[in-house]
Protein backbone atom coordinates (compact mmCIF):
# COMPACT_ATOMS: atom_id res chain seq x y z
CA UNK A 1 0.00 0.00 0.00
CA UNK A 2 1.75 3.14 -1.14
CA UNK A 3 1.38 5.92 1.42
CA UNK A 4 1.06 9.24 -0.30
CA UNK A 5 2.68 11.44 2.24
CA UNK A 6 6.05 10.91 3.89
CA UNK A 7 4.73 12.12 7.26
CA UNK A 8 1.91 9.60 7.18
CA UNK A 9 4.26 6.65 6.98
CA UNK A 10 4.89 7.06 10.71
CA UNK A 11 1.23 7.18 11.54
CA UNK A 12 -0.24 4.40 9.45
CA UNK A 13 0.48 1.48 11.73
CA UNK A 14 -1.84 -1.01 13.30
CA UNK A 15 -1.24 0.26 16.80
CA UNK A 16 -2.39 3.71 15.68
CA UNK A 17 -5.75 2.58 14.30
CA UNK A 18 -8.38 4.98 15.64
CA UNK A 19 -11.27 3.66 13.58
CA UNK A 20 -11.76 0.59 11.44
CA UNK A 21 -14.66 -1.38 10.03
CA UNK A 22 -16.46 -3.47 12.67
CA UNK A 23 -16.29 -7.25 12.31
CA UNK A 24 -20.09 -7.41 12.59
CA UNK A 25 -20.27 -5.98 9.06
CA UNK A 26 -19.40 -8.50 6.34
CA UNK A 27 -16.97 -7.74 3.51
CA UNK A 28 -19.77 -7.59 0.95
CA UNK A 29 -20.08 -4.29 -0.88
CA UNK A 30 -23.35 -2.67 0.23
CA UNK A 31 -26.09 -2.74 -2.38
CA UNK A 32 -27.18 0.79 -1.44
CA UNK A 33 -26.80 3.79 -3.75
CA UNK A 34 -23.75 6.05 -3.24
CA UNK A 35 -24.29 8.25 -0.17
CA UNK A 36 -27.33 6.41 1.15
CA UNK A 37 -28.00 6.68 4.89
CA UNK A 38 -28.73 2.94 5.12
CA UNK A 39 -25.01 2.29 5.00
CA UNK A 40 -24.31 4.53 7.99
CA UNK A 41 -27.13 3.00 10.05
CA UNK A 42 -25.94 -0.52 9.19
CA UNK A 43 -22.54 0.46 10.62
CA UNK A 44 -24.00 1.97 13.77
CA UNK A 45 -26.11 -1.14 14.48
CA UNK A 46 -23.18 -3.45 13.74
CA UNK A 47 -20.76 -1.43 15.92
CA UNK A 48 -23.29 -1.44 18.77
CA UNK A 49 -23.60 -5.22 18.59
CA UNK A 50 -19.81 -5.61 18.56
CA UNK A 51 -19.31 -3.21 21.48
CA UNK A 52 -22.01 -4.97 23.54
CA UNK A 53 -20.41 -8.32 22.61
CA UNK A 54 -23.75 -9.83 21.66
CA UNK A 55 -23.01 -10.99 18.10
CA UNK A 56 -23.68 -14.57 19.16
CA UNK A 57 -26.98 -13.70 20.81
CA UNK A 58 -28.51 -11.30 18.32
CA UNK A 59 -31.08 -12.18 15.68
CA UNK A 60 -31.94 -9.56 13.08
CA UNK A 61 -34.98 -9.28 10.85
CA UNK A 62 -34.59 -7.77 7.41
CA UNK A 63 -37.63 -6.18 5.70
CA UNK A 64 -38.70 -6.01 2.10
CA UNK A 65 -37.30 -2.84 0.58
CA UNK A 66 -33.78 -1.50 0.01
CA UNK A 67 -32.62 -3.27 3.16
CA UNK A 68 -34.02 -6.64 2.05
CA UNK A 69 -30.44 -7.84 1.57
CA UNK A 70 -29.34 -6.67 5.01
CA UNK A 71 -28.48 -10.27 5.85
CA UNK A 72 -25.64 -10.01 3.32
CA UNK A 73 -24.15 -7.10 5.27
CA UNK A 74 -24.65 -8.05 8.93
CA UNK A 75 -22.53 -11.01 10.08
CA UNK A 76 -25.43 -12.14 12.26
CA UNK A 77 -28.09 -14.82 12.20
CA UNK A 78 -30.87 -13.10 10.30
CA UNK A 79 -34.30 -13.75 8.86
CA UNK A 80 -35.86 -11.96 5.92
CA UNK A 81 -39.52 -11.12 6.60
CA UNK A 82 -42.45 -10.70 4.27
CA UNK A 83 -43.14 -7.02 3.54
CA UNK A 84 -44.26 -5.30 6.73
CA UNK A 85 -44.24 -8.37 8.95
CA UNK A 86 -40.86 -8.02 10.67
CA UNK A 87 -42.34 -6.95 14.03
CA UNK A 88 -44.45 -10.14 14.07
CA UNK A 89 -41.38 -12.31 13.43
CA UNK A 90 -39.48 -10.41 16.10
CA UNK A 91 -42.36 -10.84 18.56
CA UNK A 92 -42.26 -14.61 18.21
CA UNK A 93 -38.47 -14.92 18.32
CA UNK A 94 -38.16 -12.74 21.41
CA UNK A 95 -40.92 -14.58 23.25
CA UNK A 96 -39.45 -17.95 22.29
CA UNK A 97 -35.87 -16.82 23.09
CA UNK A 98 -36.31 -14.19 25.83
CA UNK A 99 -32.59 -14.01 26.54
CA UNK A 100 -31.60 -13.21 22.93
CA UNK A 101 -31.36 -9.73 21.43
CA UNK A 102 -33.86 -9.24 18.60
CA UNK A 103 -34.07 -6.26 16.27
CA UNK A 104 -35.99 -5.39 13.13
CA UNK A 105 -34.51 -3.12 10.46
CA UNK A 106 -37.24 -1.58 8.31
CA UNK A 107 -37.97 1.20 5.83
CA UNK A 108 -40.95 3.57 5.83
CA UNK A 109 -43.01 1.60 3.31
CA UNK A 110 -42.40 -1.64 5.21
CA UNK A 111 -43.04 -0.28 8.70
CA UNK A 112 -45.63 2.48 8.17
CA UNK A 113 -47.59 1.29 5.14
CA UNK A 114 -48.14 -2.45 4.73
CA UNK A 115 -46.70 -3.20 8.17
CA UNK A 116 -48.49 -0.43 10.08
CA UNK A 117 -50.68 -2.85 12.00
CA UNK A 118 -47.80 -5.13 12.96
CA UNK A 119 -45.81 -2.10 14.11
CA UNK A 120 -48.65 -0.74 16.22
CA UNK A 121 -49.48 -4.05 17.86
CA UNK A 122 -45.91 -5.13 18.57
CA UNK A 123 -45.48 -1.73 20.24
CA UNK A 124 -48.80 -2.02 22.01
CA UNK A 125 -47.82 -5.39 23.43
CA UNK A 126 -44.57 -3.85 24.63
CA UNK A 127 -42.44 -6.55 23.04
CA UNK A 128 -38.84 -6.36 24.29
CA UNK A 129 -37.41 -5.77 20.85
CA UNK A 130 -35.50 -2.99 19.10
CA UNK A 131 -37.00 -1.49 15.95
CA UNK A 132 -34.68 0.44 13.62
CA UNK A 133 -36.80 2.49 11.22
CA UNK A 134 -35.26 4.28 8.23
CA UNK A 135 -37.51 7.10 7.05
CA UNK A 136 -36.49 8.50 3.66
CA UNK A 137 -39.98 9.45 2.57
CA UNK A 138 -40.05 7.19 -0.44
CA UNK A 139 -40.08 3.58 -1.68
CA UNK A 140 -36.46 3.24 -2.77
CA UNK A 141 -36.10 -0.37 -3.90
CA UNK A 142 -39.03 -0.28 -6.31
CA UNK A 143 -37.87 2.94 -7.91
CA UNK A 144 -39.05 5.99 -6.00
CA UNK A 145 -42.78 5.73 -5.32
CA UNK A 146 -44.71 7.73 -2.73
CA UNK A 147 -44.52 6.37 0.80
CA UNK A 148 -46.64 7.13 3.89
CA UNK A 149 -43.92 9.55 4.98
CA UNK A 150 -43.66 11.36 1.62
CA UNK A 151 -43.96 15.08 2.36
CA UNK A 152 -46.81 17.31 1.21
CA UNK A 153 -46.04 18.51 -2.31
CA UNK A 154 -43.12 16.08 -2.64
CA UNK A 155 -42.71 14.67 -6.15
CA UNK A 156 -42.30 10.90 -6.52
CA UNK A 157 -43.02 8.48 -9.34
CA UNK A 158 -46.53 7.97 -7.97
CA UNK A 159 -47.09 11.56 -6.98
CA UNK A 160 -45.66 13.12 -10.14
CA UNK A 161 -47.37 16.48 -9.47
CA UNK A 162 -46.45 16.48 -5.79
CA UNK A 163 -48.23 14.74 -2.93
CA UNK A 164 -51.70 16.27 -2.57
CA UNK A 165 -53.04 15.45 0.91
CA UNK A 166 -56.63 15.69 -0.27
CA UNK A 167 -55.98 12.83 -2.68
CA UNK A 168 -53.08 10.99 -1.07
CA UNK A 169 -53.30 11.70 2.63
CA UNK A 170 -50.82 13.37 4.93
CA UNK A 171 -47.26 12.40 5.86
CA UNK A 172 -47.69 9.73 8.55
CA UNK A 173 -45.77 10.39 11.78
CA UNK A 174 -45.97 6.81 12.98
CA UNK A 175 -43.21 7.39 15.52
CA UNK A 176 -45.32 9.92 17.40
CA UNK A 177 -48.26 7.51 17.12
CA UNK A 178 -46.50 4.58 18.75
CA UNK A 179 -44.87 6.83 21.34
CA UNK A 180 -48.32 7.21 22.87
CA UNK A 181 -48.65 3.45 23.40
CA UNK A 182 -47.77 2.38 26.93
CA UNK A 183 -45.87 -0.59 25.48
CA UNK A 184 -43.10 1.64 24.10
CA UNK A 185 -40.24 2.43 26.46
CA UNK A 186 -37.79 4.45 24.34
CA UNK A 187 -38.86 6.32 21.19
CA UNK A 188 -36.55 8.68 19.37
CA UNK A 189 -36.00 10.24 15.97
CA UNK A 190 -32.40 10.65 14.80
CA UNK A 191 -30.53 11.43 11.60
CA UNK A 192 -27.19 10.55 10.00
CA UNK A 193 -26.69 13.41 7.52
CA UNK A 194 -23.96 15.10 9.59
CA UNK A 195 -21.15 13.58 11.72
CA UNK A 196 -22.55 15.15 14.90
CA UNK A 197 -25.93 13.58 14.24
CA UNK A 198 -24.30 10.25 13.43
CA UNK A 199 -22.69 10.25 16.88
CA UNK A 200 -26.05 11.03 18.51
CA UNK A 201 -27.78 8.32 16.47
CA UNK A 202 -25.14 5.84 17.62
CA UNK A 203 -25.90 6.65 21.27
CA UNK A 204 -29.62 6.23 20.62
CA UNK A 205 -29.12 2.85 18.95
CA UNK A 206 -26.88 1.73 21.81
CA UNK A 207 -29.54 2.77 24.32
CA UNK A 208 -32.19 0.94 22.28
CA UNK A 209 -30.21 -2.31 22.46
CA UNK A 210 -29.24 -1.88 26.11
CA UNK A 211 -32.93 -1.41 26.95
CA UNK A 212 -33.64 -4.97 25.84
CA UNK A 213 -31.94 -6.15 29.05
CA UNK A 214 -34.53 -4.23 31.09
CA UNK A 215 -37.56 -6.04 29.66
CA UNK A 216 -39.47 -2.79 29.74
CA UNK A 217 -40.94 -2.75 26.21
CA UNK A 218 -40.16 -1.59 22.70
CA UNK A 219 -37.18 0.61 21.86
CA UNK A 220 -37.98 2.40 18.59
CA UNK A 221 -35.34 4.40 16.74
CA UNK A 222 -36.42 6.30 13.64
CA UNK A 223 -33.60 7.59 11.45
CA UNK A 224 -34.52 10.28 8.94
CA UNK A 225 -32.35 9.56 5.94
CA UNK A 226 -31.73 10.58 2.35
CA UNK A 227 -32.69 8.74 -0.83
CA UNK A 228 -30.48 10.15 -3.51
CA UNK A 229 -31.78 8.20 -6.48
CA UNK A 230 -35.43 8.48 -5.36
CA UNK A 231 -35.19 12.19 -4.70
CA UNK A 232 -33.05 12.63 -7.85
CA UNK A 233 -30.33 14.58 -6.06
CA UNK A 234 -26.65 14.12 -5.31
CA UNK A 235 -25.93 12.83 -1.80
CA UNK A 236 -24.71 16.29 -0.69
CA UNK A 237 -27.79 18.02 -2.12
CA UNK A 238 -30.08 15.36 -0.65
CA UNK A 239 -28.70 15.87 2.85
CA UNK A 240 -29.24 19.61 2.49
CA UNK A 241 -32.80 19.08 1.24
CA UNK A 242 -33.40 16.70 4.12
CA UNK A 243 -32.41 19.31 6.66
CA UNK A 244 -34.58 22.01 5.07
CA UNK A 245 -37.65 19.82 4.37
CA UNK A 246 -37.82 16.40 6.02
CA UNK A 247 -36.91 17.70 9.48
CA UNK A 248 -39.78 20.18 9.44
CA UNK A 249 -42.31 17.36 9.24
CA UNK A 250 -40.14 14.91 11.14
CA UNK A 251 -38.41 16.91 13.92
CA UNK A 252 -35.42 15.20 15.51
CA UNK A 253 -34.98 14.30 19.16
CA UNK A 254 -36.13 11.94 21.86
CA UNK A 255 -39.90 11.55 22.12
CA UNK A 256 -40.10 9.04 24.93
CA UNK A 257 -37.38 8.06 27.40
CA UNK A 258 -37.60 5.40 30.11
CA UNK A 259 -41.31 5.04 29.43
CA UNK A 260 -42.09 8.74 29.82
CA UNK A 261 -43.03 11.15 27.04
CA UNK A 262 -40.46 13.94 26.95
CA UNK A 263 -42.13 15.91 24.22
CA UNK A 264 -45.54 17.48 23.71
CA UNK A 265 -47.28 15.47 20.94
Amino acid sequence: MDVKFESWKEIIKDENIAFKKTKVLTDNILSYCPGCGHGVVHRLVAETIEEMEIQDQTIGIAPVGCAVLAYDFFDLDMQQAAHGRAPALATAIKRLYPEKFVFTYQGDGDLAAIGGNETIHACNRGENITIIFINNGIYGMTGGQMAPTTLEGMVTSTSPYGRDPKLMGYPLRITELIAMLPGTYYVTRQAVYKPAYVRKAKKAIRKAFENQKLNKGVSFVEIVSNCNSGWKMTPVEANKWLEENMLKTFPLGDIKVDGELVKEL
Binding site: K4, I11, A18, K21, G39, R43, P195
Partner: peptide
Protein backbone atom coordinates in the same frame (compact mmCIF):
# COMPACT_ATOMS: atom_id res chain seq x y z
CA UNK B 1 -1.68 15.59 4.81
CA UNK B 2 -3.34 17.92 7.33
CA UNK B 3 -5.58 15.23 8.80
CA UNK B 4 -6.21 15.79 12.52
CA UNK B 5 -8.07 12.48 13.06
CA UNK B 6 -11.28 14.30 13.91
CA UNK B 7 -13.28 11.22 12.68
CA UNK B 8 -15.81 13.21 10.64
CA UNK B 9 -15.08 11.25 7.49
CA UNK B 10 -15.40 7.84 9.12
CA UNK B 11 -18.62 8.97 10.82
CA UNK B 12 -20.30 9.99 7.59
CA UNK B 13 -19.00 7.34 5.17
CA UNK B 14 -21.96 5.09 4.25
CA UNK B 15 -19.78 2.27 2.98
CA UNK B 16 -17.18 2.25 5.79
CA UNK B 17 -14.30 2.39 3.29
CA UNK B 18 -12.05 4.68 5.39
CA UNK B 19 -9.65 3.46 8.08
CA UNK B 20 -8.39 6.17 10.40
CA UNK B 21 -5.05 6.32 12.17
CA UNK B 22 -4.07 8.67 15.02
CA UNK B 23 -0.68 9.23 16.60
CA UNK B 24 1.22 11.70 18.71
CA UNK B 25 3.94 13.17 16.54
Amino acid sequence: ENCTACENCVMICPDTVITLYRAKV
